[in-house]
Simulated assay, not measured.
Amino acid sequence: MSKPVTPYSGVPQFTVKDYSSFFLAGALCCTVTHGAMTPIDVVKTRIQVDPALTGSSLIKGTRSIVANEGPSALLTGFGPTAVGYLVQGGAKFAGYEFWKTTFVRAVGGQEDAVKYRTAIYLGAASVAEFFADILLTPLEATRIRLVSERGYASGLVTGFTRLAREGGLRELYAGFLPILCKQIPYAIGQFTVNELCHELAYRAMSEETKRSLSPTHKFGISLGSGITAGCAAAVLSQPADTLLSQINKGHGPEGSMVHRLTVLAKQAGFKGLFAGLGPRMVMTAGLVAGQFLLYGWIKDALNAPPGVEIHKESDPTKA
């Protein structure tokens, strides 16, 4: 059953149930993928903050941690990772659908939105991520503290409680600015590059070819687009990701967050800001590709409608 459309050309009017489905699909796809990537994230974070592992490869860093601390160390921070990205993922994916639809309406409908599609992708991703990060930041601070300080706490509840008790809201949100600097470029790379990759792939096909695409071919396009988007997201957000790890470990001088970030960036230099990029590209390529695939499958299972399409090759009269 097709969704009712607004007075704007071809724009569906999503219901609360639709957005609930978007939220649930986004929450599940993010918590599953980020939870599965916890070992890689542990190694990446330790490479960024532990002088003994600086410059190590993913394999070398993993071997060192396992040898010195045991295999269980690779699952440090699993609790805050799973819970943090459960709420952040739901807010981000549902928010992206909401803001993309809102911006499409603002420019007059799908036909007019095609001309501004890149700006719409950038704006929707940025605004959705901003609100999602309000939910994520305290849990990300807890995760990084657990990973970077062995023995800090036994898990999510004790770690969050200790951080809140000792530092209050200021400590829980100490990384809000750097997490915005990290996550907004990440979301821009994730959503914008994925949209553009799909557009390029389908633009090269005839209408007959698109109609006859097999599930395997569609899966290949989604997988390739997700991997490319993941690599872009990693590169765009890597400097802020490094600074976030440093801030949450307590590094840097006293003063405003902007001052602390500036000093830490100068100390790290270009090479230091991109420390751990290799492991992180592996992680985010898998994360982003997995998230988009899971998001689509879960939406289908929930019988949720597709999002608004404003690709150049799409027919704007079809909702």
Rank of each mutant, 00 (worst) to 15 (best):
Ala119Phe: 10
Ile59Phe: 15
Glu171Arg: 11
Tyr186Ala: 11
Ala187Leu: 12
Lys312Asn: 11
Val157Thr: 12
Glu97Gly: 04
Val32Gln: 11
Gly226Trp: 01
Thr33Glu: 05
Thr161Asp: 06
Gln13Ile: 05
Ser56Met: 14
Ala304Arg: 01
Leu177Asn: 02
Gly108His: 09
Phe219Asn: 07
Ile247Trp: 02
Gly175Met: 03
Thr54Asn: 08
Gly189Pro: 10
Cys181His: 03
Thr317Gly: 02
Ala240Met: 15
Phe98Ser: 00
Val16Cys: 10
Thr54Pro: 00
Gly286Cys: 07
Ala240His: 07
Thr228Lys: 09
Tyr96Met: 11
Gly276His: 04
Leu146Val: 07
Pro12Ala: 11
Thr216Gln: 14
Gly109Arg: 00
Ala153Arg: 04
Leu213Thr: 02
Ser237Gly: 09
Ala233Phe: 07
Asn303Ile: 04
Ile227Gln: 01
Gly168His: 07
Ser206Cys: 10
Thr45His: 03
Lys60Leu: 10
Leu277Ala: 14
Glu171Pro: 00
Arg165Ala: 06
Leu302Val: 08
Leu287Tyr: 07
Phe219Trp: 09
Arg203Lys: 14
Arg170Asp: 13
Trp297Val: 15
Asp241Leu: 15
Asp315Leu: 11
Gly61Thr: 04
Ile247Ala: 02
Ala201Cys: 12
Lys115Ser: 13
Leu302Gly: 04
Gly79Pro: 01
Leu74Ala: 15
Lys3Leu: 15
Asp41Cys: 09
Gln190Ala: 08
Phe14Glu: 01
Val308Thr: 00
Thr15Gly: 10
Phe219Ser: 10
Pro215Arg: 09
Gly272Val: 15
Ser245His: 12
Gly35Asp: 03
Tyr152His: 08
Arg143Met: 14
Pro4Leu: 13
Arg170Glu: 09
Phe176Lys: 01
Val43Leu: 03
Asn303Trp: 10
Ser237Tyr: 02
Val258Thr: 11
Leu236Arg: 02
Asp315Val: 11
Met281Cys: 09
Val107Ile: 15
Ser314Asn: 09
Gly10Pro: 01
Leu74Arg: 06
Gly255Phe: 12
Thr242Trp: 07
Ser20Thr: 15
Val235Arg: 01
Thr158Ala: 12
Glu149Pro: 00
Val282Asn: 12
Ser206Met: 10
Phe191Met: 07
Lys312Val: 10
Lys210Ser: 06
Thr158His: 12
Ser9Asp: 06
Phe98Trp: 06
Thr45Ile: 09
Ala128Asp: 05
Leu294Glu: 11
Tyr96Thr: 07
Ala174His: 02
Gln48Leu: 05
Phe22Ile: 04
Ser212Phe: 03
Ser212Asp: 08
Lys100Met: 12
Thr45Gly: 01
Leu196Phe: 14
Ala301Asp: 09
Tyr202Gln: 11
Gly95Val: 08
Ala106Pro: 00
Gly55Ala: 13
Ala285Tyr: 05
Gly276Trp: 02
Ala285Met: 14
Lys249Ile: 10
Arg105Ile: 01
Ile120Cys: 04
Val49Asn: 02
Thr62Ile: 04
